[in-house]
Design a protein around this nucleic acid. Structure first.
Length: 293
DNA sequence: AAGCGAACCTGGCTGC
DNA sequence: TGCAGCCAGGTTCGCT
């Protein structure tokens, strides 16, 4: 589920409940998710104060007063539920179950302000880890990570450099987190459609010096920024099993141009084509053969 | 070495 | 209605 915009939305949802607050108590209900929890996970968290929440690609990064960093990845089905403690909350009114009632509630953070933050993940592709903040960039999960697509460095020139000589399809290159980190299946399909580029085109062809490849690479860079920025503004996308951290509505509002629209008319103005679904490296690609070259 | 396919795990939907 | 089969937003591993 969660690609960069959804993770950013989760970060924003967690911030008011966690920032500046102490972790009074942590419930860890199983020994592993995708990977084992780090040793003494609970003990290393309890009593610490959250000094900040940030995001890198699809990872949540929670800074702690102990100078360790809690890294969390939501995998495919991870989600957080926030129940604010005290007067203004009536948890479970209509959106979500009370924490502790689902067999997939794996971790519960009890904060100093009374907030209860529950991590639920049926498929358990998510994970949590603790690393020293000083060595975050060198940590196992971060050291080979590519550039941040909403950062300043992504432009046509960098895409040409990153994709030079790559024989993988453009779709696969954009999903490669070692090149650009944070794109997933949905937003890659969307960006390629807007840029008018075929997912099947070899990535290296964008790096050519000749023709209008420079312009195409530039266009792709800007569509990547656009689709991500719009999705962040829309509060993260909302599909099937994803809800915002406060369980609020606004859940079915975001529609995609091509993703999951097999057989529908291409949304490009005056394009006669239809959206097709193909499989590339085991995953669905939605695109329009007629306007994506 | 890059580039594929399989594997990890559960739930929801489709079609027989 | 029941159930088998397929599909899902991500990442990693192992084989060419």
């Amino acid at each position: 589920m969660p690609e960069l915009p959804e993770v950013e939305t989760v970060r924003r949802g967690l911030e008011p409940a966690m920032a500046g607050q102490r972790l009074l108590r942590v419930e860890q209900r199983r020994k592993d998710l995708r990977f084992p929890f780090p040793p003494h996970f609970r003990e290393r968290l309890e009593g610490q104060t959250v000094t900040g929440l940030s995001r890198r690609a699809k990872y949540l990064v929670i800074n702690l007063s102990s100078d360790e960093v809690l890294i969390m990845h939501l995998g495919m089905s991870g989600r957080f539920t926030v129940e604010m403690g005290g007067e203004n909350s009536t948890p479970g009114e209509f959106h979500y179950e009370i924490a502790g009632t689902s067999p997939h509630d794996h971790v519960v953070f009890h904060m100093g302000n009374g907030a209860r933050i529950t991590y639920n993940d049926p498929r358990r592709f998510g994970f949590m880890d603790l690393v020293p903040s000083a060595s975050l960039a060198q940590s196992k999960h971060f050291r080979a990570m590519g550039i941040e697509p909403l950062g300043n460095s992504l432009d046509g020139n960098l895409i040409q450099i990153l994709f030079a000589h790559k024989k993988a399809p453009l779709k696969a290159a954009l999903l490669d987190q070692r090149l650009i980190a944070g794109l997933g299946n949905i937003y890659v399909c969307e960006a390629l459609h807007r840029a008018g580029l075929s997912p099947k085109r070899l990535a290296g062809t964008l790096a050519s010096n000749r023709g209008h490849m420079k312009g195409k690479a530039e266009h792709l860079a800007s569509t990547i920024r656009d689709v991500l920025t719009e999705a962040v503004q829309a509060g993260g996308s909302s599909l099937r099993d994803y809800a915002q951290t406060d369980g609020s509505l606004g859940y079915f509002q975001h529609r995609f141009g091509v993703y999951d629209r097999e057989g529908e008319k291409c949304p490009t103005v005056s394009c006669p084509g239809a959206i097709e679904r193909i499989v590339q490296s085991g995953r669905s690609t939605f695109y329009c053969k007629s306007c994506q070259k």
